[in-house]
Design a protein around this nucleic acid. Structure first.
Length: 371
DNA sequence: CGGTCGACCTGT
DNA sequence: ACAGGTCGACCG
């Protein structure tokens, strides 16, 4: 909304960065907040003594530390058995490759303690699909990195239709951004948002599935940051744009636009409890909404997902590529036309190529042939 | 691209 | 006989 003039104020503003640990954040607060005469302030020695006593048997551990994989990074939620957030960096270069998800299998993350880990059996027959946060399709370049996205530490229970449809198209849009921007950063994760009851009270409620009680998110979020250096003037500051989205974990049809689900970065941060891209310069504007100097992704790039026709053509192309018989091949093309969609040049060429390939490997049958 | 499921093979 | 892993058919 606030697309007007943005003021940059550097004076004295400091961001309560999440780049620091909780402990040092508390320490920072103590430093900055002028605490009025604390009575009986304990001497440092006493503090240390007290702390040692409190921590005698160790302090609670959350298991939320940052975990690094070949091409994604995440923080895990041991209570929900899902990630809290998953971050990745995309470039056009990194999206090239032949890695194939057919060689991958969902499995428990070997680095997550078994007692806090989800298992495949939690998901199977639960009514929910296993939805990637860092998508497999972002890891064509490496079998290893693709295999790691199938660890259940990167997975949340997701509505089937949402996963294969709207969310899938959102992931495709993120990949498409690498054609127009040099660097793309994406942070994705699950949310359990409160719902308002009839009496006006708000309550957080979410289903859990399987023996491990994996939490089913009510919504999913994605924060997308893009950057390109100025092609005409290399010395100019790079152009940056950011979009934040909150998507309900249920079927979403083609009539809905991505922009319908866009929220401000600060709103997403508020509901998620995360500080996203904490090192990104923030605007000091009164609203405190949106980073200063960073454009709105949807105003800059449109945030247009594939439409029905385009998406169906794309899916048919993928299926044609994987067809194993001439009969199946023809059935795919017939189904496309039945839906009133004419194949484009790309699909026609793919079809002819596949037809030739299958004809050669599948000798003509039915006519006076050897069995 | 995103998924599930059942048939089938393997090892104990 | 049964658990577990692979593979191919299927759906949006």
């Amino acid at each position: 909304m606030a697309a007007g003039v943005k003021l940059l104020r550097f004076a004295g503003g400091f961001v309560c960065g999440a780049a620091v640990s909780t402990a040092s954040c508390v320490a920072a607060l103590r430093l900055h907040r002028a605490e009025p005469e604390e009575p009986r302030a304990p001497s440092p020695d006493t503090v240390s003594e007290v702390q040692q006593l409190i921590g005698r048997f160790g302090l609670p551990e959350t298991g939320a530390e940052v975990r690094c994989y070949a091409n994604h990074t995440l923080s895990y939620d041991q209570s929900k058995r899902t990630p809290r957030w998953v971050a990745e960096h995309l470039t056009n270069q990194k999206l090239q490759g032949q890695a194939d998800r057919k060689h991958c299998r969902f499995r428990a993350d070997p680095d997550i303690p078994a007692c806090f880990s989800a298992g495949n059996d939690d998901y199977l027959g639960s009514g929910w699909s296993r939805g990637h946060m860092a998508p497999a399709g972002d890891n064509k370049q490496s079998e290893r990195s693709m295999a790691e996205t199938f660890y259940l530490s990167n997975i949340v229970p997701q509505n089937y239709e949402n996963n294969a449809g709207f969310w899938n198209r959102l992931e495709m849009y993120c990949r498409e951004l690498t054609q127009r921007f040099q660097d793309v950063w994406v942070v994705s994760g699950p949310l359990a948002l409160p719902a308002e009851k009839d009496d006006g009270t708000r309550t957080v409620s979410y289903q859990v599935i399987g023996k491990d009680s994996v939490a089913v998110p009510t919504h999913l979020f994605k924060a997308v940051l893009v950057q390109s250096s100025n092609t005409t003037d290399q010395s100019a500051a790079p152009v940056q744009a950011l979009g934040a989205f909150i998507v309900p974990n249920r079927p979403i049809g083609f009539e809905r636009k991505l922009r319908d689900f866009q929220v401000s970065l600060s709103e997403l941060e508020g509901v998620s409890g995360l500080t996203l891209f904490p090192k990104l310069p923030r605007g000091g504007g009164g609203g405190g909404d949106g980073p200063g100097g960073v454009a709105d992704l949807c105003e800059l790039d449109g945030c247009q997902l594939m439409g029905y026709k385009e998406f169906t053509l794309y899916l048919t192309g993928r299926k044609v590529g994987g067809a194993r018989s001439l009969a199946k091949l023809e059935q795919l093309m017939a189904e496309l036309r039945r839906q009133g969609i004419e194949p484009d040049d790309y699909l026609n060429k793919l079809y002819l190529k596949k037809k030739e390939q299958l004809t050669n490997q599948e000798p003509p049958q039915g006519t006076a042939g050897a069995g």
